[in-house]
């Protein structure tokens, strides 16, 4: 028997596999397909203070081994998430959920986190300071150590729940930004958000995506994510949730060896709706193949 249980910021979860925000909605589409209680947890759709329509369409473009998206944080706003989405979610998911939060000003993050802090279903707050697809907010907080510190400090004062800061790879020194978040009191780091990219339609000779740029995700970015998690593991002591192109149980183990305590699975859910279930089902086999008895033992094992 192998052990897949891990502890993430003081909360034990059955396995380290977490569907990433924006690829799993509020869980219902997937709950029609399989019992989503098999997941470690999942990170729900990025939530903001006010409702957002998001960007114009097209929002999606294909790339080699991946895709671009520029959805732009479409969500019903935190009040509706609490009054409508969470009660519906409680019908299909009986574990703690990870609440993903975005904002356009420090006060927005604080407002949304204060609201979600009162929700018993919420285990962790994942604070996204790395959305590449909105203007005047989002990623701009995650591209300097100073603003990352400021958001983290303010959010930490607004909640007692563990705060995980989601970082952007579109920076020169991700380890420095992660260290600033740790100094501000962050309980964990999740990384990496998507890599900013663009595709151009040869027929129209214009960018495919209406927002022009989009975030690149999918298996193509796995090596970038592994490298960055490896670097950040050496710079901070708090746990890292690793993500970027994970599609198989082997990828989970590779990410954990780089330094991740848990992993998020994003784009794979969109292509293979059973992706997370398949990964979880396959983990024991792959662990045995590589002589791993307890997943906890391999965190940062590559260092």
């Amino acid at each position: 028997m192998v052990n897949t249980k891990i502890s993430l910021c003081g909360i034990e979860i059955d396995n380290p596999v977490i569907p990433a925000s924006g690829t799993f909605g509020f869980g219902y589409e997937f709950a029609e397909l399989y019992d989503i209680n098999c997941l470690g947890t999942f990170s729900f759709k990025g939530t903001t203070k006010d409702p957002r329509f998001g960007n114009p369409t097209p929002r999606i473009a294909e790339c080699a081994s991946g895709m671009l998206n520029a959805v732009g944080l479409q969500n019903p706003g935190v009040e509706k998430v609490i009054s409508e989405e969470l009660p519906k979610l409680s019908q299909v998911f009986n574990k703690k959920v990870m609440a993903n939060v975005s904002g356009f000003a420090v006060e927005d993050y604080v407002y949304t986190c204060e609201k979600l802090d009162k929700e018993e279903q919420v285990g962790w707050l994942e604070v996204n300071i790395s959305c590449p697809n909105v203007h005047g907010g989002g990623m701009s907080f995650g591209t300097s150590a100073e603003s990352a510190y400021e958001v983290t400090k303010a959010v930490k004062a607004a909640t007692k729940k563990p705060v995980i800061i989601k970082l952007s790879p579109n920076v020169t020194d991700i380890a420095g930004i992660a260290a600033a978040c740790e100094n501000a009191g962050a309980d964990g780091i999740s990384m990496i958000n998507t890599l900013m990219g663009m595709r151009i339609n040869l027929k129209t000779k214009k960018p495919i995506i209406a927002n022009k740029t989009g975030g690149y995700s999918g298996p193509a970015i796995l090596p970038v994510a592994i490298r960055m998690v490896y670097q950040v593991y050496e710079a901070v002591k708090i746990p890292i949730v690793g993500m970027g192109g994970i599609s198989t149980a082997e990828d989970v183990i590779e990410m954990m060896l780089a330094g991740a305590t848990a992993v998020e699975v994003g784009a794979a859910n969109l292509i293979e709706p059973y992706a997370c279930k398949n990964i979880i089902d396959d983990l024991p086999r792959v662990m045995e193949k590589y002589g791993i008895k307890d997943l906890k033992d391999i965190i940062g094992g590559a260092h």
Partner: peptide, 16 residues
């Protein structure tokens, strides 16, 4: 519309 998942998860094809 250009779609990501095709089953309602990614919000890639939303219209008003």
């Amino acid at each position: 519309e250009r779609m990501g998942c095709g089953f309602g998860a990614c919000m890639g094809c939303t219209c008003k």
